[in-house]
Design a binder for these strands. Structure first.
Lengths: 364, 364
DNA sequence: CCCACTTAAGCAACGCTGTTGCCAAAGTGC
DNA sequence: GCACTTTGGCAACAGCGTTGCTTAAGTGGG
């Protein structure tokens, strides 16, 4: 590591605190305290950031007996990213500013079975419609677009941006989505699983820089996004988080994956027959396995199926986890909550695939 | 992060490569290539290390047409650490030099039920007998002792060095082992779970600095040591790796933990009735769950019970994982191997709790 | 044997980092 | 209005890795 790396590391640290502070801003001295840098170092870093237009002064705090602190604020319009959520039947595209706030949004029906070229072209048009062509802000000033993040279900290679397979659509196997879309749009493109995007969104927005949690997403399938020590855990071949086919019942009922006793099959079967409490209990057992294995801070539940019965799922899963924690003599059980972000969270997380690295978040 | 942190980071990088190179050593230019630093920076860093006595020149390589490269080597005697493995019925203590090689070893029977004071005093005497009193090398030169690492079963708080409970010995609950032993010995003490120590040993010795793997330990109990991205994953409250009570059979046979269908119970019951293949299959299902969730590189099996039937366990667990990988259409399954290190691996890993940080390993 | 060539590694100067010491700016409060 | 407190920039500095050059120590052809 050399001096340049040191500089960008500390700059990211400062930017992250500015982002977290939001519109109310943060003073130089507070930045110094929180980063562990000296006030003078912070002054130099923020001076550079102000020159680059990323940071601006925004009023002052009340005096505490001396010169009042000058408040600094991130300039939201200094950069943008597009987040694209390709779900099985719907496309959601959001344009986010530097702070991650959604500036514009578009939705369109989507048929993943229509073939790669058609889907890519349709998605590209939505991105262009969202970000303007040529890319410009409503005011006319050029829109600094960092790139496009794409989130979609199914196993894929995050580092290369290649899809492995999308359940039910074998024609997508091996499709190099990142490179195709990047060439079509002329921008940087990052591809990730929808569960990872949802987890990244929470990690960047709601959690501290070293939080650990899991987002369980129950919709047409069941998957998990894992955040360990503040960064999305993708694993050696970026395939981590395959939670749906965790076996919780040896020789249980067959799953469409070919195995037996998978949580996903058991859980969805229970939902289908109207037994939400049973589904929550099965999900809770698998979730408790995960909590015990990884010792995370919080467990978040999301996805359409959970959204339809929020209270029952939170209560049911929480009960299983509390019971296990009590048996193990732990001080307190890991809390279970509904994942914030809602339906748009995945698309926002997709945009964060490009925004988060600026703030030293997400990848470590 | 300031300049001092940058310096120690790069120094650790260089030291780690020197350690990995072993007695055959490594040249300055190779260090430069591998670290990404310039040759001149490496020269400066290694000059400091030679002044401190940590590094020495050790011959030269064959010339490739010009001046031959000077080989540098870590000086093993420049530092030592003691590793202490408190198992249920036996104590193992090793004295390791900077390279992690075992310089001396002691074993003694142990009765964890004899009470904290007795056990601590016995352990302290073993450490003193091992490292000399006053601490000195056989030659008479002072032995630079970095500290003592202690590995033992059961959940505990790694950061505070306090035991939560040792199964079967309730009198240990809440015992501040680290502070008591540190005061008694007058050295730094670090406490960790035996499974984490075993995993750390493998991470430091056999694996690259960003390897991901799991060590499953099957003995009187079943636990896992997780190494993710080169560092031991301990989780938010340093309780991660509780693998034995992963539920793989809803409403299965009761486990002594009070739950039902835990892998540990199923697995050990199968072993007890002589059904090693069945035990391996159950372990394989839970291991496959772990592999799918975390996407690790390798799965390592260890512990007394595995040692007694190595081939059958490796084959049986491997079969389950391969079958699941084939169903998921993966290129190749995660390999399953016997954990290297053997019976002494845990004690050596305990010593690495103090050695590894010097090389930027283990904790990140 | 000598001399041109190649490769390794140290010396010196440099640019840049965060740090320290100092001072001007901008408030409060008696 | 003046003493005091606090903020934050300016200037000098130590220390990091980098660059340019020199010296050391080999090989190999004539």
């Amino acid at each position: 590591m050399n001096l340049g790396a040191l500089r960008s590391h500390n700059t990211a640290l400062v930017l992250d605190l500015l982002r977290t502070a939001g519109p109310s801003g943060i003073s130089r001295l507070e930045l110094a305290e929180r980063t562990g840098l000296t006030p003078q170092a912070v002054s130099k870093i923020t001076a550079r950031l102000r020159l680059d237009g990323l940071v601006a002064e925004a009023g002052r705090r009340a005096s505490t007996g001396g010169k009042p602190r000058t408040v600094l604020r991130l300039v939201p319009e200094a950069g943008h990213a597009v987040g694209l959520h390709l779900d099985r039947d719907e496309l959601t595209a959001v344009l986010c500013d530097l702070t991650g706030a959604v500036v514009a949004e578009r939705r369109a029906p989507l048929d993943l079975g229509a073939g790669a070229d058609t889907v890519v072209e349709g998605a590209a048009r939505e991105v262009e419609a969202l970000s303007g062509s040529p890319l410009a802000l409503p005011g006319g000033s050029p829109l600094a677009l960092l790139g496009v993040g794409v989130a979609l279900p199914g196993p894929l290679d995050h580092t290369r941006g290649v899809l492995h397979r999308v359940t039910g659509f074998p024609e997508w196997s091996g499709f190099p989505l990142r490179d195709v879309l990047a060439r079509r749009l002329g921008t940087a493109v990052v591809v990730d699983k929808d569960t990872n995007a949802a987890a990244l969104d929470v990690a960047v927005r709601g959690a501290g820089p070293s939080a650990s949690f899991a987002c369980l997403h129950l919709g047409t399938g069941l998957g998990a996004g894992l955040v360990l020590g503040g960064t999305v855990h993708r694993g050696a071949r970026t395939g981590a988080g395959e939670f749906g086919h965790q076996v919780v019942q040896l020789d249980g009922p067959p799953c469409e994956c070919g195995n037996r006793g998978c949580v996903e099959a058991l859980c969805l079967a229970a939902v289908d027959r109207g037994d939400v409490a049973g589904a929550a209990r099965v999900l809770g057992v698998a979730a408790a396995n995960l909590v015990a294995l990884l010792d995370i801070d919080v467990l978040l539940l999301g996805g359409r199926t959970v959204a339809a019965h929020e209270e029952e799922f939170v209560r049911g899963v929480g009960a299983v986890i509390e019971e296990r924690a009590r048996r193990e003599g732990a001080d307190r059980a890991v809390p279970v909550r509904v994942a914030p972000g809602g339906a748009r969270g995945v698309a926002e997380g997709a945009a964060q695939l490009l925004l988060a690295p600026l703030f030293g978040r997400g990848d470590g």
